[in-house]
């Protein structure tokens, strides 16, 4: 499902430089991993690369579901990247990333509408499974953070993506709620055979959820810049 070889991404220069180097990351379809590491070690940058919203500076190989992502970026085929993202990707953002002008139902339904998929009851089913079914008519601003996160999970899964990315989905939650949201998300992802990459700083939670842990680390280089990498390749 995911094949990254020699992927590089750098931001800034000199002491402000931040580089992410992924020598090898191969994940099979249905595999579920956690990117674990301290803040600033490149978890979100790696997720953005996988979400096709950030272009790599260099890549010996970068493929998602058989699609040559590196080639699409080189050819600047942004519409095909957006189309692939829309069709195959679900992304749970740290703060939910919900659209305030839509109600919960509208937020969950939107990825399906964008793909022209009809109403097959998956919105209600996911809302039920993630325990937000009684919030469907409400605007995100009236929800608690935990509820928003669960709505975000439902939205990420509504169109049946092949790849689910989650960026600190439980960071804003208390431990009880964090555990609950993670369990609900992964249960649904497993039910749909979705490949999962979850970024979290909570290694214990990742272990408890049964995720394969991939540690990310960073080092300070002689120029003062920072280079982040996957410590243990999958």
């Amino acid at each position: 499902m995911i094949r990254l070889d020699g992927v590089r991404k750098t931001r800034g220069q000199g002491a402000q430089r931040y580089s992410l180097e992924i020598d090898r990351l191969h994940l099979a379809a249905g595999e579920r991993v956690a990117l674990v590491g301290p803040s600033g070690c490149g978890k979100s940058t790696l997720l953005d690369l996988l979400a096709l919203v950030l272009a790599p500076d260099a890549a010996q190989g970068f493929a998602l579901g058989g699609e040559d992502v590196a080639g699409l970026w080189r050819a600047r085929q942004l519409d095909r990247l957006a189309s692939w993202r829309s069709r195959h990707l679900g992304y749970v953002l740290q703060a939910g990333g919900l659209l305030g002008f839509l109600d919960v139902r509208g937020n969950i339904r939107l990825p399906r509408q964008l793909l022209g998929l009809g109403d097959d009851g998956s919105v209600e089913r996911l809302a039920e499974a993630l325990d937000v079914h009684d919030q469907l008519g409400k605007k995100p601003a009236t929800l608690s953070i935990g509820q928003r996160q669960r709505v975000s999970c439902a939205r990420a899964l509504a169109h049946g993506p092949a790849l689910l990315l989650a960026d600190e989905p439980t960071a804003s939650l208390d431990p009880v709620n964090a555990d609950r949201v993670m369990q609900l998300l992964l249960r649904e992802a497993e039910a749909c055979q979705v490949t999962c990459v979850v970024a979290t700083h909570d290694e214990a939670l990742a272990h408890k959820a049964g995720l394969t842990v991939l540690r990310m680390a960073c080092r300070r280089d002689t120029d003062g810049g920072v280079t982040a990498s996957l410590e243990r390749a999958a």
Partner: peptide, 8 residues
């Protein structure tokens, strides 16, 4: 967010 969801 709309762009993330696939808006060009």
């Amino acid at each position: 967010v709309l762009r993330l969801l696939g808006f060009g």
